[in-house]
Design a binder for these strands. Structure first.
Lengths: 197, 197
DNA sequence: ACCTGAACACCGTTCAAGT
DNA sequence: ACCTGAACACCGTTCAAGT
């Protein structure tokens, strides 16, 4: 028994059965141990979920340093996305919890550093960070099915006869969602806006 | 007993005690009724939460028609924000659930219609809709404390001695978060990008 | 220091019985 | 058609007891 073994088993459980299926008792069973043993290494269910989120966050690779701001920011965004899509059912933990731990600051540093190096004043850099992050969180929540598609959950035929003119007109495009393309479309908007200080 | 009375009591309960505190049994107690009575009007806990989300969504006011696209989009975004901030603890229901109901299409129509009227081809209009929505979802999740601040959860002193250079340099700005200003900053980026088809 | 198991106070939902 | 209550199969966590 160790904290790490517990967190890894927890992540595996989320990956396989989904967040809603995770319980301390089932996790203990999976580890062949009494439920209460977990409490020696983890502070409770909430702390367990925080711990899993931190593992995911820590696994995001630091992209190679690049003198071009846009290149760096793009690589960071894609790295974050890849990490979340690697564990889609666990991603909401990262996208949804406020982590107090210091490891949660690594991605902040990764985004802030290139912005400051590019000449951004710190206040603008923080605004930029937060805008990009909001977009990333919103987009990724949608990708992992934890946020509304606002239309995507409906069938084409249903959209067409909704009685809503704009929805009907755009029905063929609403009915499908190419996450990759949507991600690039939105990311380009953010990166264009942050092109220079 | 009626579906509406149940949904209203459910919303009140979320407002007062938070999402995690909602249970079918407590809701029944609040209504002075047997827990199982609720099942005659609502399909279970998940359907109850969907129903509450739909109520919130339906309460978003339709802004007055304005020939200016930017004005219209801005009014829609602010209306959506106001509706979520009016029920911050319930907002994650809207921001987090995929509603299959037809009422979930009203906001889509509201955003799509002005974009089409402004000359957007339908495919571009849907991209624009999704990018704006992703930003709104991400920002509002942060505002209602359901998404990471990535830094905001930390104290100033802690940020300064984090050992991370960019984080230290920007610490005073990371330590505070003016949600209003962040919202306007990000929204402006999105609206600028959507200024013309 | 770590593990155990009984116990407490909860859950959502099924089902048979009532009116 | 709607309400009820017992019952089932779960929860997270406390606490006293063990090693």
């Amino acid at each position: 028994m160790s904290r790490e073994r517990i967190l890894l088993a927890g992540l595996a459980m989320v990956d396989e059965e989904g967040l809603a299926a995770v319980s301390m008792r089932k996790l203990a069973r999976r580890l062949g141990v009494d439920p209460m043993s977990l409490y020696n290494h983890v502070d409770g269910k909430d702390a367990l979920l925080d711990g899993i989120a931190e593992m995911l966050l820590a696994a995001i690779p630091a992209p190679p340093a690049d003198p071009d701001l846009r290149e760096t920011m793009s690589a960071l965004a894609h790295g974050f996305r890849a990490a979340m899509l690697g564990h889609p059912r666990a991603a909401p933990l990262v996208l949804t919890r406020r982590l107090a731990s210091i490891t949660a600051l690594a991605p902040v540093e990764a985004v802030l550093a290139p912005l400051l190096a590019a000449g951004y004043p710190p206040d603008r850099a923080v605004h930029g960070l937060r805008a990009v992050l909001a977009f990333l969180v919103g987009t990724l929540m949608r990708e992992v099915e934890a946020a509304p598609t606002f239309g995507g959950a409906h069938r084409l035929a249903e959209l067409e006869r909704s009685g809503l003119p704009a929805v009907s007109a755009a029905a063929p495009y609403l009915a499908v969602c190419d996450h990759e393309a949507e991600f690039e479309f939105g990311l380009r908007i953010m990166l264009d806006a942050l092109a220079e200080p």
